[in-house]
């Protein structure tokens, strides 16, 4: 797969593919501290928040440069809801690859499946100039899928993007701000490339009513493994995943806190005197009184 073939034959428009994942709302997943079990039933599935920003950015870029925003997701049939959410934000169409054979994929197998779907999408009218992903999915926080897809497509991954500074369709170049620990770097890349975005990149806008109506009526296109081409089944799903979960355990409990006795004021007094044992922390000037 050569780089050019991804975006072959197009000139002045920006066709963007956004990879999105449906995740359990981890803000709502609650753990029962007594039993150490998760209450998954209570957590509704949502569009990965970072991916919402990615879609929003794609829509923004489309408004400036023209083109099309397509979303792609791998997941169970319910993930259609996440795709519809993207249509609310302004995506033009969405594809879901859904098949038991994809199930149990780690990031390597996920990026393989998505890569195969991207290849098929590239052949559709217009091709793809830019791929956007979220910085990470909040259920696993790995952030490995995006760079994985990029490597398979042999296009540069630009991770942790906080701003798209410039898109030059003439020279087929893009400049972005990439967040690093102590600031950001301004990096230029040839198009096509893949960006993973941080939340700072934009505010997800309140969707206009026509988008809502469109999304309500929209049915994402669903592909199974058989709809993709040249798929090596051994690289899919659980079978294609080099990593497996070994054991799981609740973290070791220490003997636990000594709960201070008495009413609030008594507890506080006790706490203060304990803190003052670490007196050097609150050392007086000159340090002579320790």
């Amino acid at each position: 797969m050569s780089l050019e073939s991804i975006s072959e034959g197009r000139g002045k428009k920006l066709n963007i593919l956004v990879c999105v994942k449906q995740v359990p709302d981890t803000k709502i997943i609650k753990v029962n501290p007594k039993t150490n079990t998760l209450d998954r039933s209570s957590a509704p599935a949502i569009l990965n928040p970072y991916d919402a920003h990615a879609v929003q950015e794609a829509v923004r870029l489309k408004e400036i440069h023209g083109g099309k925003v397509t979303v792609l997701s791998m997941g169970p049939p319910q993930a259609k809801e996440a795709i519809k959410k993207c249509v609310e934000i302004g995506a033009d169409e969405g594809f879901l690859i859904s098949d038991r054979r994809f199930a149990g994929a780690d990031t390597l197998a996920t990026s393989y499946a998505l890569y195969k779907a991207v290849q098929k999408l590239m052949k559709q009218d217009g091709g793809i100039d830019l791929i956007l992903c979220g910085k990470h999915a909040i259920d696993g926080d790995t952030g490995q899928t995006g760079p994985g897809i990029a490597r398979r497509l042999l296009i540069p991954p630009l991770t942790n993007v906080i701003k798209v500074a410039e898109v030059n369709l003439e020279d087929r170049k893009i400049q972005v701000h990439r967040k690093i620990e102590d600031g950001y770097e301004l990096i230029e890349s040839a198009i096509p490339c893949l960006l993973t975005v941080e939340k700072e990149i934009n505010e997800v806008e309140y969707s206009p009513l026509p988008n809502m109506l469109k999304a309500a009526r929209y049915t994402p296109i669903v592909w199974t493994v058989d709809d993709l081409e040249d798929v090596d089944i051994k690289q899919l799903g659980l079978k294609g995943s080099p990593t497996i979960v070994g054991k799981m355990w609740p973290p070791a409990k220490s003997e636990g806190a000594q709960i201070l006795a008495g009413d609030s004021r008594e507890q506080v007094r006790e706490a203060v005197s304990i803190m003052l044992q670490q007196r050097e922390l609150f050392k007086v000037k000159g340090g002579e009184r320790v």
Partner: peptide
């Protein structure tokens, strides 16, 4: 009239 942009229907 809804609270959304272009919100009339």
């Amino acid at each position: 009239r809804t609270d959304r942009p272009d919100g009339d229907v």
